[in-house]
Design a protein around this nucleic acid. Structure first.
Lengths: 253, 253
DNA sequence: CGTTAATTTGACATCATTCAATGGCTGTGG
DNA sequence: CCACAGCCATTGAATGATGTCAAATTAACG
């Protein structure tokens, strides 16, 4: 029926935040080399490799550390009382994971690798010590947490008042923006998550996501080849959102 | 058509966190009297009265302070690009406002008083100083921010996978829980916000909220008299939610 | 290469919205 | 105190978007 498009490849590999996997803690203010050294001292001790499908942490596990994604991507989800899962977010290289654990002694969400990944471990008590020593690091850490709050507000906005079509457009544009910030192409997306995960995240059913992707393709806005999505007309995708640029529905530019 | 029920009155006035309006910063761990004095020194300098309908802050205003609600209630909302508003939350006495401003130099949301209110001002740079001096205060502040994140995750869960009926039940149960924690009746709610605000918050239309309230009343679960809602069978209201107790859709017990 | 799971697509049902009309409350000024 | 205006809330009927169920196709993986 619909022609199978040629497969796409990602065009670059480097993370935008220079030599640092602590994008979240460094951005948007440039920290001094000295402060960056402090942060690196924090993380360079412990690295972990998590294979696709394995968990970085699970809800209920004791909380000790935050994690910065060095390479790869994760999804986080929350289990409902009756055992279903609710996808909370997708995290790419440079993103910080584990902030859901700070308020209690345990993690609330679960984080599972969408591909083979490398992550940096930040013992939280060390980070707290560090923030007491350096007001700049403290401020950055607070900004990071507040940014997570804003991101969630943005998702709430999406879930609360966007149509299915708008949600999917916002999702694709958000990914595009984040890929671009990491040095990948903004128009050739490699979706690491299943349609079901996307649907769950957007508060929709997989069938709806599938239908909408097909509709976008029929309209010539995107071209799909399995997990690869080529954004043909990013302006028309933005037009689907009307005025809502998705600036708030965001995970750090 | 439906009989007008007798009006209800709230049964108590006191805030649960003793002499402190900093519920969020004190809970759930008991701070020592000494630490509490520190916190009080923070806030006792500045108090504000905001009248019903007036704004505590607006999106775009420069961020300097957090606010603890002493008496009264607020709603927060975000303006969309085309001028409509999206209600983000309702805040009661003891709740903290303004955390949306930490990540930038300006507030992102706007906060408007739903009734005449009294609030305590916490200059953020003072709070940051304080957290550098006291690891306990620091931890509490981090918990508070993380709790805001969890709360938002809970709302996302609601918006993402609950039906309209479940959302309204969750909303009423959440309010009930929070009223009770503040020494009010858990079954006699005085809704300070309009139906439109409720609908907006829940991602629904006012007509739907109105219809569902009527249905709950017809079913004998609640009794409505204008802005006063009497929960007749709180267990049946919980049953509407199935297993989801709304434990995550919460604003500190 | 075969088995299994994921995705796509169609037909239909359902829930929530939209449009429209009525009724009730609140605050204001005479 | 009453009357009026304006907004908010309720209710009904019809529409439309998204979910449900089922089947066919494709992709994933050992």
């Amino acid at each position: 029926m619909r022609p199978t498009e040629k497969p796409f490849t990602l065009t670059a590999q480097k993370v935008s935040c220079g030599r640092c996997c602590l994008r979240e803690l460094c951005a948007p203010i440039d920290v001094t080399p000295q402060q960056e050294d402090l942060l690196h001292a924090l993380v360079k001790q412990q690295h972990l490799s998590i294979r696709r499908g394995d968990h970085l942490y699970r809800g209920g596990m004791p909380f000790h550390s935050l994690f910065a994604i060095h390479t790869g991507s994760f999804k986080t989800y929350m289990l409902t009382d009756d055992g279903r899962e609710r996808v909370e977010g997708f995290y790419l290289s440079g993103d910080m994971l584990g902030m859901d654990g700070i308020s209690g002694d345990t993690y609330t969400l679960s984080a599972v690798a969408l591909e083979d990944t490398g992550i940096c471990v930040l013992p939280f008590h060390r980070l707290e010590e560090l923030t007491r020593e350096s007001p700049v690091v403290q401020r950055q850490f607070h900004r990071m947490m507040s940014r997570e709050i804003l991101r969630d507000k943005g998702i709430m906005m999406m879930l609360g008042q966007m149509t299915a079509e708008e949600r999917l457009a916002a999702f694709l544009l958000n990914l595009s923006q984040r890929y671009e910030a990491r040095g990948f192409s903004a128009t050739e997306l490699s979706l690491r998550m299943s349609r079901q995960d996307i649907a769950n995240y957007l508060g929709l059913k997989p069938e709806t996501v599938s239908r909408l992707l097909s509709r976008f393709q029929d309209d010539g806005i995107i071209a799909i080849s399995g997990k690869n999505v080529h954004i043909v007309h990013i302006d028309r995708l933005r037009a689907v959102l009307g005025f809502g640029d998705g600036i708030y529905f965001d995970q750090l530019p």
